[in-house]
Simulated assay, not measured.
Amino acid sequence: MTDELKVKVRLDMYGFIGAGNMVSAIAMGGFKSGFLTSTNCLFTDKSGQRAPQLAAVLEAGYVADNRVLASQCDVIVLGVKPPVVLEVLQELSDILQAERPLVISLAAGISLADLEVAAGAQVPVIRFMPNVNASLGLSMTALCAGTYATAEHVELATEFAGTFGECVEIAESFMPVFTALAGSSPAWIFEMIDAFAMAGVKHGLSKAVATQIVAQAFSGSASLVLDGLASQSATPNNLIDQVCSPGGTTIAGLLALRAGGAGTAIADAVAACIAQDEKLGARR
């Protein structure tokens, strides 16, 4: 990307249709990094409640109509629920075809092909899949680009995603798997943290202290895995071996965890998530 294009990126107008938790999280990341500003950002939503509030917090613009927003923006982020994504695009199709803004969809289960048909001929479309950790700038986000999205569009979208975490470009066929591994898994990880904390409560710790202990252990362990991947010095299995002493407490607990079917339960959760993603696409 040239310096001239980088300057242009900063001057582009970004519009967010929908103002739910995910839009709020990625918008906050964009603002904290300076990628988004009060002068290059607009929000709208169907209820007319959350978007004005978010805009006020960020000192950004608010408009009450999707078509008004679409006519003013160079990048449009669709943060509405999957069942209405295509309907929203169809309502904006004439504007999108005339202006050809970059459309970024956050909806699970809605394919690039369907998004492109609804948006209209030659409208550039990218699918984004962030996760809730975007609120802390720690999202793992996947993107896949449609037929009319250029390398510059992908670079811009990747830069935007980098303001609220890490980003990887993947083939669309892997998007349901990514949804499970990164989009939905935080909820399952929260469940595991709570289960560990409850075990701590059973053995006398307060819930708050037990939760702090476990959450920090998860955070540090994840950092060790990422560091090992970056340096090619360790894998999760290597790290397990480092923690497990012969005849020790850790291996006893690990074998109990495996006997309880933890690995199978996680694989089943991923499969269930992928199946639901496919159902969402089929219901369009």
Rank of each mutant, 00 (worst) to 15 (best):
Y148P: 03
A151N: 10
R283T: 05
I17A: 01
A208H: 12
D65V: 14
N133Q: 04
L92R: 01
V125W: 02
D3L: 10
S245Q: 12
C144F: 05
P83K: 12
E169G: 14
N238E: 09
S38E: 15
E4C: 04
A145Q: 12
P186Q: 03
A234R: 08
A275Q: 07
T163C: 12
K46G: 02
A25L: 11
R283P: 12
P186V: 06
P176E: 14
V84H: 00
G30K: 06
A25M: 04
D45A: 15
I110Q: 03
A272Y: 11
S33E: 11
A256H: 12
A275Y: 06
L92W: 01
V214C: 12
Q216K: 04
M22C: 13
G260R: 05
Q242V: 02
G263T: 15
I189D: 09
L257P: 02
G253P: 03
S33L: 05
V77K: 04
M28K: 07
A269S: 08
L229T: 07
L92Q: 01
Q216W: 08
K32H: 09
L5P: 04
H203W: 04
A60G: 03
G34L: 12
G204M: 01
F128R: 13
G162W: 02
M192D: 00
M129R: 01
A64I: 00
L136Q: 13
V117S: 10
V84A: 00
V88W: 12
Y148M: 03
T163W: 10
M129I: 13
L255Y: 10
P186F: 06
I95L: 13
T150C: 06
S231Q: 13
G165A: 05
V85Y: 07
S245G: 12
M140C: 11
A98V: 01
Q97C: 11
P246N: 14
L86R: 00
A187T: 09
L205F: 13
A19W: 00
A118T: 02
V80S: 06
I76T: 15
V63G: 07
A55L: 01
A187I: 07
S206T: 12
T44C: 02
S38C: 12
G146L: 09
G200L: 02
I76L: 04
A55T: 06
V201D: 03
Q216I: 08
F178E: 10
